[in-house]
């Protein structure tokens, strides 16, 4: 019952927000396409990655929607075949960074009582994070890739290694903001154990900014990977597994951009659309995940009578609706 009603809310908020609804549809569509390409590529992709079509450097046509290149490879097919890899890279790197950095950030933010093991761990985590953050991440990733050798896996590993510190910072900051809120103190006064407070009150209230950041971050990872691919250390193109960054690099450097502009169009457009879709979805999620904004969207569509006490909750607050007024006395705690 609860699940169905929250799904219903999800839909209502999405519908109320046309742009994020569009983003949601786009992400769903992209994921679906990626799955189809992995499972049954022939449905969507007419040619193989290095299959010669016999048509050299043709401009877009019905047969070749994004044209062909000097090797007579179909650009549309290559772009589509790159989708699962690029999408997977985005999700895997951002996800791994989220899990690793998030866990470290939780520890670093929550345990800070001086003289405890937790505090010592927090300090070490933060200093190591600072060291990683003080390098330009792209250059660091490039250096690591160079050291490990060219290829998809080394690049993924290199980006992942430079990516987690951002999540440590983000999560720690959010934990610090949440953990001194009155309801955390209230839970402690009620006798709730620290571990449970961390999960139930702190993590739950972090989820919204973290998920939003994660969604937006998938796009950023994609762009970074493409950049490294563009420099030419990640994947080889043309090759058995195409990748957008490498495609861009290859067509751009083949010096024919003026004669055959459509060659760079397809991979460029693919990166653009994917990143945009995740950005729009991220913005929409921000509204969906917060019960306070959720209510603003569904008010008027929910049709059960409010109990008398909640009268004036939203309309009652005076100057600015939907923000609650604070307590009058600031109290004595410094």
């Amino acid at each position: 019952m609860a699940i169905r009603s929250s799904l219903g809310t999800f839909w209502r908020v999405l519908r109320a927000n046309p742009l994020s609804f569009f983003g949601f549809l786009l992400v769903a569509f992209i994921c679906l396409v990626a799955v189809v390409i992995v499972v049954a590529p022939h449905l969507l992709v007419p040619y193989g990655p290095q299959q010669e079509t016999g048509a050299f450097s043709q401009s877009p046509s019905w047969k070749h929607p994004f044209g062909t290149d000097a090797n007579s490879f179909d650009i549309y097919s290559n772009t589509m075949l790159a989708l699962p890899l690029d999408l997977g890279i985005g999700v895997v790197i951002a996800g791994a960074a989220l899990l690793a950095g998030g866990a470290l950030g939780l520890i670093a933010g929550f345990y800070d009582r001086p003289g405890t093991v937790g505090a010592a761990a927090s300090v070490s985590i933060m200093r190591i994070t600072d060291i990683f953050l003080s390098f330009p991440s792209l250059i660091l990733a490039l250096a690591i890739t160079r050291a490990l050798g060219v290829g998809v896996l080394p690049t993924v590993f290199a980006i992942g290694l430079t990516w987690w510190p951002f999540y440590v910072r983000l999560v720690r900051g959010e934990v610090l903001a949440v953990k001194h809120l009155p309801y955390v103190t209230a839970a402690r006064a009620a006798g709730v154990r620290e571990g449970r407070i961390l999960l139930r009150h702190v993590v739950r209230n972090l989820l919204e900014p973290i998920i939003v950041y994660f969604t937006l971050d998938i796009g950023t990872v994609l762009v970074t990977y493409s950049t490294i691919g563009f420099i030419g250390v990640a994947s080889k193109y043309p090759g058995p597994q195409p990748e957008w960054g490498a495609m861009l690099a290859f067509y751009q450097s083949s010096g024919s951009i003026n004669a055959y502009p459509w060659e760079v169009l397809a991979p460029g457009l693919a990166i653009f659309v994917t990143v945009l879709a995740f950005s729009l979805l991220g913005d929409g999620l921000r509204d969906i995940l917060d019960p306070r904004t959720r209510r603003a969207f569904v008010r008027g569509t929910v049709s059960h009578d409010p109990p008398p006490e909640r009268a004036g909750a939203a309309p009652g607050s005076e100057s600015v609706p939907l923000t609650a007024s604070g307590a009058v006395d600031a109290g004595a705690v410094p």
């Binding site: 969207f297 008010r299 008027g300 939203a314 309309p315 939907l322």
Partner: peptide, 11 residues
Amino acid sequence: TYTVGAGEFQA
């Protein structure tokens, strides 16, 4: 009058 979401109220 304030307009919030779908609702409207006269402050």
